[in-house]
Every structure is written in structure tokens, then in C-alpha cells.
Design a binder for these strands. Structure first.
Length: 926
RNA sequence: GCGAGGGUAGCCAAGCCAGGUCAAAGGCGCUAGGUUGAGGGCCUAGUCUCGUAGGAGUUCUUGGGUUCGAAUCCCAUCCCUCGCACCA
């Protein structure tokens, strides 16, 4: 009749919860929680589950504690990924089809529609809502929106108007990875290869060659003084091209690249590499040098020609040495210019010879180059005749000088290659114009954020440092994009506001999301939002009454209390939103706190949709039940720790819920008279209530479950053991059930809701009052008595185990009064050294001699071993041990199946009796 | 490489900030016994080593140090996770 059936509990509760969590301003104190909204491009897995269940548990907790709780949800559909996905589905890319059809189980007819990117996000947004609901997440769904809703775009425009007016939006140029086939910048997820590649800024050193110039790209312009020659690949065909009207000799590849980097290119003629060999070039800072052949020169690296500094560049040194070993160019000597500790005059030579490098192709060349470069960069100094500056300073100085006086230009190139787009094309660096930035580098802005961070609650506290570092480190952020979904950038409507920049203050939008829909988006001018969010009046506000309602909502809910998000967003989103808030909202509307989550693992490995290592949340709910999923996710680790989903562990979580269910069913109708053990149970219950409450107030879901579930379960086991077999449970068990259900309700709301109906009769447990610790029910003496009994039982068991005889009787021999005196004196004394002397001053003690000093030592050890919760009350007043054991004699005899005698140690003949201590009676088994 | 966090018994994980209450909570797994009596049930005990009396010994990545005393503090070392930007 009342079977454990999670599926049934879920169905029952869902009906009653349908609109239960819709939350409106009220007289109650508010609690506004929100979590980073999802980008719905795929199905939810158990990792997502935790992200939304943690805030839900906290929301349910505060709701029961009588707060007006708001937990809203929306969908972030801004950005480019779904554009790519829809393209790949259109092209019938097998990997993508497999992912969506087989892993996410999108029905074929829906999948067919995925050629439209909006369909993808809308489909999965609905899926998210469905699965979140199935998980019992108590969201106010009336406030759901997506970031491409017209009203939301109006809101974003308003936000940006304020950012702009504050001077945080600036225009600039920016080098990006660019695919010339797609004609678009490419992000990491668009890359087939080279996603680690960084764009590096090279200086082009311009050598004069007849009427043309040869640019060589370098990261170390200061080494110009040590150039002995250039390197050219003899088997490569170079071109002479007019670059911005000047004749340059460069590789063909370089010509294409430079065209993307703000240069006009007009190719005039081809020049074979070998025709350049032995020609001479000149630069004012190094004089005239020859061009030498080198096969290692890559035409696809920067300009395709390089300058050679054999004294400081191991590659150059070896290449030159190889030529000279063949008897060529023997007059060329490396020209050193940097002094660096740990190396001789020619660092490159030292490094090469130390490593015993024979030829250019040695695999260690890169490492040696790195070693020399970083040694020179960190510790090197230019020779006095070149200015004597440290390398790290001279490098930038020389580069600036060259650009100013010697015609040098900047060229961007990747540090590693190849970099290949998903379309198969080589990615190049392009300088984007009309690129807009958010000026996160602004020290004044940074300071405002840092100042506010001091007022914020951060969970766990360790993340504070990371936030501080991030604020400090943040540079200007390119905030507009050319492709994707999103809101048009107001100052250049061909561009869109970038996804991380349109999701920073939407927590404020939640407060009005369900109301603003009633107004035509066209009417939503900045003045409207100025009124709602800032209280600024304007003459012609539309729908003033509706605006007033929204103003009230905002004032009631804002600022939010806590924002939840995974820790990988600290370095961007979570910090960005602080920047935006401090600019737009007044001080009393700034965020109050943040909770940062750890990451999720599946069977020990990182969850990843693309690798197929995911467990869908829906499947988990189906296989184990929503409560099981919730309890497992909340109990296996604290929110900020990484957690690992393992099916075997989840199964045992389900058994635990079932055990709870059975126990409640067994006890809820008990109506016996209470005994001492009931008073003990209730006393213990109070501390579980207290600890659970404290843990949840600190977001410690795991700790809370330990207290609320295992703490109470362990007590009940002892209770049952202690209960005389002739007696039924007392009516206090009904109280315990009522409390227990409520303590667990945030974690396993479905089961709790079902049981609540049986225990309380009516109302939803979700809105029932959270249990409050009743200090008047706390009975330290009874708890101590049970503690003494339990410890003694344990001791008897371990002795029985050791002596391997069949006991015929057990004698418990209690410590005499004088030992209790000693115990108390030691426990209350602060100075352990003098305490022995003080005790032994006493005449009576001294008469006891060694017996007394032994007792002192033993008591000292015992006091160290006992928890303070035991020592503290004992030191105030000993308990009547004889009464405790007399009362429990029946229990002990039942436990051990032999007669149990209780004696006083000082009247016992048995030598063991002398070992009796307070709270640790001597045990004699015969 | 840089920034942040972390490494605890078979596994997960508490403890570390405020050093002695730590052989180290709790859960899982495993083993034994009991109960019911057939099998994802419940209860009890055990689960580093030794021990015929509730104890002792060696442990908390590794190596040093501070201290009467360190899982806990300091230094170094190795390993792991996250972030390093135009990407949600």
C-alpha cells in the first residue's frame, strides 16, 4: 500500500508544485538566488544537474526558513556555436549527426529542423526546462526568457548606453585568427588544429637591398647589433612586391598575410631564393651583411627571410658552423652583444657545445633555443657600447626606435603552426578594424570592482584571491562580433554584442522578465529602463502603471543575494558581471555574494560531450529517481569540490533513501510512552537540527546531509538497540519523523513531500517551517550517560574479541570518588606540569602513593582522548555511573547474554578493578 | 611558462585556517557473525601492522625544518585540477 516508489512520488509532487514556486514580492524578507544560465546547444548531463540542484537545495532551505525565495532561469542563446552546429548538420557531418541523433536522442523530424540555429536552442531550452522540472528544481518559470528576445535586446541596448557613457566602450584595432574562406574570425571551437596557438607580435627589421627592402621578422630586435648575415631558403621562390608603395622582398605566403594586416600588396615579380644568395644588404644598426643559404628557413613563417645572430641564437650558430665546416664564409665571426650570467662571450655556442649538438636537425634545438632566450631575457644585459640596458627593457626600446626611425613595421604571426580551420583552410592573422572593446584595463574601473569585492560574500573563501588576480590581470575585451546570434551593437549595427558581454546584468532583468513582455519592445527606450532600474523619471514614459509594478519588483528583489557558477567562469563571466554592475547600478544594488562550483567527473574522467563521456541527466533520473540523483550530487562532495559520478555509488544512495522511507513508515505512528532513551534521542536530534541548519546556511550540502541523514540514522540504530524488546517506540518518534522529513526535504523533496502528507496530513513540505533547535530539549546528562554506556559496550566487545574465551559473566567496576576528583582537577587545570604537584600536596592523596600518581597519568591520557564535549560537562559535575549501569543492566545482559555485575572498584578484590577510571570503568570478563 | 586550488588509509571524503581531543569522522566497497531463511533487505563487528584485556608500533605525495609534541605551521619536491581571453 505504501511502497517505496520514487517514480510515483515524483508524479504526485509535480502536480502540486506546478505553480508553487512562482514568487512575488511580499512582506517576507527576500532571498534572491541565481545561477549562470545555460547555453542550450545539447542535452543536459549530470554535471549540469549539479549546477542547478545546488542552488535549488539552498532555495528550498531558505524558503522553509520563511524567506521569500526567487530562483529564476533563462537561456543564453547568444553567440556562434549553434551557427556552426546547424551548418554541420546541413552538411550532414557524421560526427555531429551522431552526437545529436544518438547521444542526445533528438528525434529525426526535429533534427531535420536543426538546419536553423534558432531551432536548436529553442529545442534544447525546452528540454532543459523539462529535465530541470523533472529534477524538482524549484524555479519560477514565468520569468524564463532567451537572450534574443526583442525586449531583452532593448535591455542590452540600455545597458550598453550606460557603459558607453561611462567611457568603458572604446574602438580599436585587434589582431585575430582569421579564416579567409569563411571570411570570419575563428575561435577555439572552430579549429581543427592549433587551438593552443597564440598570436605573437613580431618586429620587422628592414634591410636595404638595392632599391628594395628585405624585412626579417624577429622577437628580439635588440639583437640587431649582432646580425652577421641573413638567411634565405635557396629552394623557395620569393616575390618582389610593392607593400604600401615600397618594394619588399618576401615569400608569397608572407605577401598574403601582410595583406590581412593593414598593408596594400602589389606583386611585381618573382625572385628565386638562390638568386639572393651572397648578395649584400645593409641596416644602419649593423652595417652591411651578406645573405647566406639555409634550408631551415620556412617561407610560411613570417616574411620567409630571417636575420642571423649566431652569438645568441643557437639555430643561427649551428647553421653558420655547418657552412664554415664546409669551408665557406669562414671570415664571419659571431658578434656578441649581451652579457648573461652562466654563459661565456657567445652564449649560443656555449649552449650548443655543452649539449654536444652536431647538426641543425637535432631534436633538442628548440629546447636549447628556449633556454638561451629565457636566460638572456631574464638575466641578460646589453654591452655598455649598446646602452647597457637589461634585455627585457632594451627589447621594447629598440623595437620602438626601429619603428620610429628605421622603417620597421609590426607583423603578427602564430607561435605554433599549423593552425587550421574546421573548413580545412589555413588560418591567418588578420587585423580587425572597427573592433570595439570594453576597457577592462582601466585602473579606475578595476578599483571600483576591487572595492566592491571587499563587501561581497565569496564561497568558498579561497576564491577571493583568484578574483583579485583576475581583476588585476584583465585587459581590454573585444566585445563585438561579426557572426552569431545576439543584440546589434548600437554604434555599428553590422556587428553584434559578444556573448560574454550581454550576460552580465541579466539578473536584474529576471525581476521584471515576466512583466516586461506585456509591453511592445518598440516602446522600450532607455528611459523606460532608467525608470525601472534607476528610478529616473522622464516626461513621456509609456505604460506607467506597468512600469511602476516592475520598479517595485526590482526594488524588492535587488540586489541578488548569491550568484552560483562553476569555477571556470571566475576569470571571465563572474568578474565581468561585477564590472558591469558597478558601472550601472547604485551601491545598494550591487551583488552581495557568489558561490563557485567545482567541476564534474564521470567515472573518474572528465565529462565531455564530444568524447561521448557523458551521462544524461534525464537518464539518471529515469534509472535512479530524481531524489537519488539529487542526494548523490549533493552528498558526494561539497559544491565547490570536484565530484565524480559513479553508478555503483548512486545505487547505494537510492538504498539510503529507501531506508529512510521505511524507517519513517515504521515509526511515524508509534505512540508508546517516552523513556529515558527517547529523551536522549530528542536531545541528540536538537544538535542535528542545529548542525544541519548551520551547514546549509554555509552552502555545505554534503556536511548537511551527513548530519541530517547519517547522524540521525546512526542515533536511531542505537535507539533501536537500546529499546527493550518488550516496548514499542514512543510517540516522540513521530516528532522525530516530522523533523527528519523536513531536514531532508531540500535534498529529496519528492520522497519528503510524499511522507509529509502521511505525517503532517496537509500542506506541502516545501513550504513547511524548517525545524528549529530547541535547547530546552537538550539533556547533556543523558547524552553523557549514553556515551558512557556505548563506550563501555565497545570496550567489552573488543576485549571479548581478544581473549577468545566464552565469558560466563561480566563485571563492570566503577572508579572511586577520589579518581573523579583527580579527573576533575586535571580537566579544569590550565597548567599540566604543576597539577601533579598540587594534587600530591593533599594528605590523603599522598597516602595513596603510586596508586595516585598512576591515576593522574591515566586520567591525563584519558582526558586527551575524550572529546571536549564529554570532558567539559564531566569536569563540572561527574555523572552517577552506578545509576547509569544499573539502569542499563538489562540491556547489557541482553547484548552479551551473560549476567552483568556492577561493583565499586575500591571494594573489589580483582586486580583489574584498579584500572577503573572515570568514564572508563574496569571490565572484568570471566 | 604564468595565476588559483588540491594531494589523507581499497575508493570517495572530513580534519589543516585557530599544532596535542588523530590510527585519523562519515559514506561506499570488502570480510565475518546474526536475523530473516534462498540471493541490489536489515542488524552487529572487523577492515595499516602486532597483541589471550580495552593496548602498542608505523602512517596522512616525497624530502627537510620549527616544536616537548605536526595530517595540521615553514621551506623544497613531484603529481593532479581549473583559468590564461575574443569562447560559451
Amino acid at each position: 500500500m505504501n511502497a517505496f516508489d520514487l517514480g510515483k512520488f515524483e508524479t504526485e509532487a509535480q502536480e502540486q508544485w506546478l505553480h508553487a514556486f512562482e514568487s512575488n514580492p511580499s512582506k517576507l524578507e527576500k532571498c534572491y538566488l541565481n545561477v549562470a544560465y545555460p547555453y542550450p546547444s545539447g542535452a543536459m548531463h549530470v554535471g549540469h544537474g549539479r549546477t542547478y540542484i545546488v542552488p535549488d537545495v539552498i532555495a528550498r532551505f531558505w524558503r522553509m526558513r520563511g524567506k521569500q525565495v526567487l530562483y529564476p532561469m533563462a537561456f543564453h542563446v547568444t553567440g556562434a556555436p549553434v551557427i556552426g552546429i546547424s551548418k554541420r548538420i546541413t552538411k550532414k557531418d557524421p560526427k555531429t549527426i551522431h552526437l545529436y541523433r544518438d547521444l542526445y536522442r533528438v528525434p529525426q523530424n526535429v533534427l531535420d529542423e536543426f538546419t536553423d540555429p534558432l531551432t536548436i536552442v529553442h529545442h534544447f531550452a525546452s528540454e532543459y526546462q523539462r529535465v530541470m522540472t523533472a529534477c524538482g528544481i524549484s524555479i519560477d518559470w514565468r520569468r524564463r526568457f532567451t537572450t534574443v528576445d526583442p525586449c531583452y535586446s532593448k535591455f542590452i541596448e540600455w545597458q550598453w548606453k550606460h557603459l558607453y557613457e561611462a567611457g568603458h566602450v572604446i574602438k580599436g584595432v585587434h589582431p585575430v585568427r582569421y579564416c579567409t574562406v569563411d571570411d570570419n574570425p575563428v575561435g577555439d571551437h572552430d579549429l581543427l588544429e592549433g587551438d593552443k596557438a597564440e598570436v605573437i607580435r613580431f618586429t620587422l627589421v628592414m634591410f636595404q637591398y638595392g632599391d628594395a627592402q628585405i624585412p626579417t621578422a624577429t622577437l628580439r630586435p635588440e639583437t640587431i647589433h649582432g646580425v652577421t648575415n641573413l638567411w634565405v631558403n635557396p629552394s623557395v621562390t620569393y616575390v618582389k612586391a610593392l607593400v604600401d608603395g615600397n618594394a619588399w622582398i618576401i615569400s608569397k605566403e608572407a605577401a598574403e598575410k601582410l595583406e590581412l594586416q593593414d598593408h596594400t600588396i602589389e606583386i611585381k615579380e618573382e625572385i628565386a631564393g638562390r638568386d639572393l644568395i651572397d648578395k649584400r644588404v645593409v641596416h644602419p644598426l649593423c652595417g652591411e651583411v651578406p645573405i647566406l643559404p639555409a634550408d631551415f628557413v620556412d617561407p610560411d613563417m613570417a616574411t620567409g627571410l630571417v636575420m642571423s645572430v649566431p652569438a645568441h641564437a643557437p639555430f643561427d650558430f649551428v647553421a653558420l658552423r655547418d657552412l664554415q665546416n664546409a669551408g665557406k664564409y669562414t671570415v664571419i665571426k659571431p658578434v656578441p652583444l649581451i652579457k648573461v650570467e652562466g654563459y661565456g662571450d657567445i652564449p649560443a655556442q656555449d649552449a650548443i657545445e655543452r649539449a654536444g649538438i652536431i647538426h641543425q636537425m637535432d631534436s633538442r634545438m628548440d629546447a636549447i633555443t628556449q633556454e638561451v632566450y629565457s636566460a638572456e631575457f631574464s638575466k641578460g644585459k646589453l654591452f655598455d657600447r649598446y646602452g647597457g640596458k637589461p634585455v627585457r627593457i632594451a627589447r621594447d626600446d629598440v623595437a620602438a626606435l626601429m619603428i620610429e626611425k628605421y622603417g620597421s613595421e609590426v607583423m603578427y604571426e602564430f607561435d605554433t603552426r599549423p593552425v587550421i580551420c574546421r573548413c580545412g583552410n589555413r588560418v591567418k592573422v588578420k587585423i580587425l578594424h572597427d573592433q570595439w572593446f570594453l576597457k577592462y584595463s582601466d585602473p579606475v574601473w578595476k578599483q571600483q570592482v576591487s572595492d566592491h569585492l571587499l563587501n561581497m560574500a565569496l564561497v568558498p573563501p579561497e576564491v577571493r584571491l583568484e578574483f583579485e588576480r583576475t581583476i588585476d590581470w584583465l585587459k581590454d575585451w573585444a566585445c563585438t562580433r561579426r557572426v552569431g546570434l545576439g543584440t546589434r551593437f548600437p554604434w555599428d549595427t553590422t556587428q553584434l554584442i559578444e556573448p560574454l558581454s550581454d550576460s552580465t546584468i541579466y539578473m536584474a532583468y529576471y525581476t521584471i522578465a515576466h512583466k516586461i513582455r506585456e509591453i511592445d519592445a518598440k516602446l522600450l527606450t532607455p528611459e523606460v529602463f532608467d525608470y525601472i532600474f534607476l528610478g529616473k523619471m522622464s516626461s513621456e514614459l509609456p505604460e506607467k502603471k506597468k512600469l511602476d509594478v516592475m520598479r517595485k519588483e526590482f526594488l524588492y528583489w535587488y540586489p541578488y543575494n548569491y550568484r552560483f557558477s562553476a569555477k571556470d567562469l571566475i576569470s571571465n563571466h563572474l568578474t565581468f558581471q561585477l564590472f558591469h554592475h558597478v558601472t550601472i547600478f547604485p551601491k545598494d544594488k550591487l551583488p552581495l555574494g557568489m558561490v563557485v562550483f567545482g567541476m564534474g567527473l564521470l567515472n573518474g574522467a572528465k565529462m565531455s560531450s564530444s568524447k561521448g563521456n557523458v551521462f544524461l541527466l534525464e537518464d539518471a533520473v529515469h534509472d535512479f529517481g530524481a531524489d537519488t540523483v539529487r542526494m548523490f550530487l549533493m552528498g558526494s562532495a561539497e559544491p565547490w569540490q570536484d565530484f565524480d559520478w559513479r553508478n555503483e555509488l548512486v545505487i547505494s544512495t537510492k538504498k539510503q533513501i529507501e531506508r529512510f522511507f521505511n524507517t519513517v513508515n515504521e515509526f511515524k505512528d508509534a505512540d508508546g510512552e517516552p523513556h529515558d532513551i527517547d529523551r536522549w534521542l530528542l536531545s541528540r536530534l536538537q544538535s542535528h537540527i542545529g548542525s544541519t541548519t548551520e551547514a546549509l546556511a554555509n552552502f555545505q550540502t554534503r556536511q548537511a546531509l551527513q548530519e541530517a541523514y547519517f547522524g540521525i540514522e546512526t542515533d536511531l540504530k542505537w535507539y533501536r538497540r537500546r529499546l527493550p524488546s518488550t516496548i514499542d517506540g514512543s510517540r516522540e518518534l513521530h516528532t522525530l519523523c516530522s523533523v527528519w522529513i523536513r531536514l531532508l526535504a531540500p535534498f529529496i523533496p519528492f520522497t519528503a513531500e510524499h511522507l509529509w502528507k502521511e505525517v503532517a496530513g496537509e500542506g506541502l513540505v516545501s513550504f513547511s517551517p524548517w525545524p528549529v533547535e530547541d535547547k530546552t530539549l537538550v539533556n547533556t546528562r543523558i547524552e553523557l550517560a549514553e556515551e558512557l554506556l556505548a563506550r563501555t559496550v565497545e570496550d567489552i566487545e573488543s576485549i571479548k574479541k581478544l581473549i577468545k574465551i566464552t565469558p560466563k559473566s561480566i563485571t563492570i567496576s566503577l572508579a572511586p570518588v577520589w579518581k573523579h576528583d583527580i579527573f576533575r582537577i586535571i580537566a579544569t587545570s590550565s597548567d599540566r606540569n604543576s597539577v601533579i604537584r598540587n594534587i600530591m600536596k593533599d594528605e590523603i592523596m599522598r597516602k595513596r602513593g603510586k596508586e595516585a600518581t598512576d591515576a593522574i597519568k591515566q586520567c591525563t591520557t584519558l582526558i586527551h582522548r575524550l572529546p571536549p564535549s564529554v570532558v567539559e560537562p564531566l569536569s563540572r559535575e561527574p555523572i552517577n555511573e552506578a545509576a547509569v549501569f544499573e539502569a542499563a543492566r538489562g540491556f547489557l545482559e541482553k547484548e552479551f547474554g551473560v549476567p552483568v555485575h556492577i561493583t565499586n572498584a575500591d571494594s573489589s578484590e580483582h586486580p583489574k578493578a584498579a584500572t577503573a577510571l572515570p568514564f572508563k570503568p574496569a571490565i572484568i570478563i570471566e
